[in-house]
Write a protein that binds this DNA or RNA. Structure first.
Lengths: 125, 125
DNA sequence: CTTCTGAATAGATGGATGTCAAATTAGAGC
DNA sequence: GCTCTAATTTGACATCCATCTATTCAGAAG
């Protein structure tokens, strides 16, 4: 994620942001141009479930074979959706022997959440 | 927003949810099917900026003429995007004389935020 | 080396989507 | 009633996208 996008959800300390960045002030064209592809990546029922399956899976990672089994879709289709999520920077993967495992890239979902909703960083950290 | 979707971000009291609903347990097919269209509605740079412009505008509402002026797009195109946002339930509108005003439907963005990020309801309410 | 299996790629196809120009609707004011 | 302006609708068009089948790639195990 770019420095600019980070700045959307990480304003200067002491400003006391009170509302969602998107609500506080107009999103710039550049900011919108960065955020839209991320939301587009999760704007699909299959990819939302893939993300959720991966994130909630034991160990925080899941094998492609597990994921494919959860849908009534062909393996190439699942592979395509995983590629979309990976290219958007939401997940990463690694091959271990015969199987390939996927996991969530930390922080990305939280940042998207922070764009839409009120700041929570201080409360949970 | 349906009762089911509400349940995603409003679990039974006392459960003490600690992480994003999407991360805690696998999203059901039905839940994903409800969430995806909402994310799809905001997964466009023009619509993201429209939402932000409306939300951050004085009084929490904006006239179509103001919105159109902020883009290098034709009025029908802006009208189309506003319709998409409205049909998704993100915004609502009203005609006052010659002009039409749009505003954010309260709570929807916060709920989307809550699906992706850690629970914050208790902290801010 | 060959074969088998898990996963990704290539190519094709039908359907959705963003944009515009032209036409239409809705009020305001003369 | 006419006209002017704000906004939406309609229709067309090019592009993108989700899905499939067929093929290819990568390791593992005989």
């Amino acid at each position: 994620m770019s420095k600019q996008l980070l700045s959307i959800v990480n304003p200067v300390d002491g400003e006391g942001a009170c509302c969602a960045p998107l609500v506080c002030e107009p999103l710039s064209e550049a900011e919108a141009g960065e955020l839209a592809p991320l939301f587009k990546a999760i704007a699909d029922p299959v990819r939302l479930r893939l993300l959720s399956l991966i994130a909630s899976h034991e160990g925080g990672e899941a094998c492609v074979c597990d994921l494919t089994a959860a849908f009534e879709l062909t393996a190439p289709t699942i592979s395509h959706h995983l590629k979309v999520l990976k290219q958007a920077g939401l997940i990463d993967s690694e091959r271990r022997g015969t199987w390939v495992y996927y996991w969530l890239n930390p922080g990305v979902l939280e940042r998207l959440s922070a764009v839409l909703g009120p700041r929570v960083t201080a409360a949970v950290s």
